[in-house]
Each structure stands twice: as structure tokens, then as C-alpha cells.
């Protein structure tokens, strides 16, 4: 019961902050949270969270149902491969995160127009530069969340977050 309540409140707050940051800086907190919590929390709440969140943003941003979910699924796939090359907890562990966040912004831009409107929108240098800066800024946020997660981590759960 406690978990459900915590999840619901956290979810509503995240929708608020995501909408706020998206409007002010076109910045996504959601992708950072997804990358931070992947394989650190149980699979069921994790996939439930990304499914619900994707449907919410497909609804409020008027995109086709499942578009955000496809973007996230592709980013997870690439992140998984990148973590094979560069270990997640290594010194250069932030590089896959940077590349994944960068990919998320690019795919959001491309796939939404391609799958929804059947048109391919060309990139502008401004967009690439903005995306690069946003991806760079995502790294400290990611590291901060990682710190927070390790604070809640139980020694005997082997890397799972404690939600009592």
C-alpha cells in the first residue's frame, strides 16, 4: 500500500516536473531517471513506470500512442550494448549515458515526425548543438541520482533499491 502511494505521488510529481522542464528548457528528466533506475530496481515496477509515463506523454503532447515507448525501448537497447563496451560503474561510465540521452533527443525529434506524420524533418545545427548541451547537462543530474540511489541501497539486495 505504501509502495503504491509512493509510486503514485512520485509519478504525478514527475509528470509535473517533466512538463515544466520540457516547456522551459526542452529538457527531459524522465530519460535520466530511466537510465539511472534500469537494472537497479525490479523489472515489473520499472517497465510499468516507463509504459505509464510514455502513454501520459503521448496523450498530453498529442503524439500517437506508443511513440514515446518505442523511443525509450530503442534507447534501452542501445544503452545495453554500450554498457557491454563501457562498464556502467567504471570511470567512463558516464559516456554511454551521454550517448543514450543524446540518442533519446534525436530519436524523439526524428521518430515522432517520421512515424506520425510520415515525413523526415532535417536537422539544423542549432538543434544538434542544443541537444549536445542538454546531453552534457544530463550527466551531473544522472550522477546525482546515482548517488541518491546508492544512498537507499541495501547491502544484501545486491544493488536493488529498498522501498519499505
Amino acid at each position: 500500500m505504501k509502495k503504491v502511494l509512493l509510486f503514485t505521488i512520485g509519478f504525478l510529481l514527475l509528470v509535473f516536473f517533466e512538463s515544466f522542464l520540457l516547456h522551459v528548457f526542452s529538457f527531459s528528466l524522465f530519460i535520466i531517471l530511466v537510465l539511472s533506475s534500469w537494472k537497479k530496481i525490479e523489472d515489473l515496477p520499472f517497465y510499468l513506470f516507463i509504459t505509464l509515463f510514455s502513454i501520459v506523454f503521448d496523450t498530453v503532447l498529442h503524439t500517437s500512442l506508443g511513440l514515446h515507448m518505442i523511443v525509450i525501448a530503442l534507447v534501452l537497447l542501445v544503452t545495453h550494448l554500450l554498457w557491454y563496451l563501457i562498464p556502467r560503474d567504471g570511470v567512463f561510465g558516464f559516456i554511454p549515458v551521454f550517448l543514450s540521452v543524446f540518442l533519446y533527443y534525436i530519436l524523439s525529434y526524428l521518430l515522432i515526425s517520421l512515424l506520425q506524420d510520415r515525413v523526415l524533418i532535417p536537422f539544423t545545427w542549432d538543434f544538434v548543438l542544443n541537444t549536445f548541451i542538454k546531453s552534457l547537462l544530463s550527466i551531473p543530474v544522472y550522477l546525482g541520482i546515482q548517488r541518491g540511489i546508492s544512498f537507499f541501497r541495501k547491502d544484501d539486495t545486491g544493488g536493488k533499491i529498498k522501498l519499505k
Binding site: G66, A73, L74, L115
Partner: peptide, 12 residues
């Protein structure tokens, strides 16, 4: 997850 997202997209 990818497979589910594609199914969700077609459902959409």
C-alpha cells in the same frame, strides 16, 4: 519492451 512498444504503437 521493444516488442511491446511496437504492438502498442500499432494499437495506437
Amino acid at each position: 519492451c521493444l516488442l511491446f512498444s511496437v504492438i502498442l504503437f500499432f494499437f495506437g
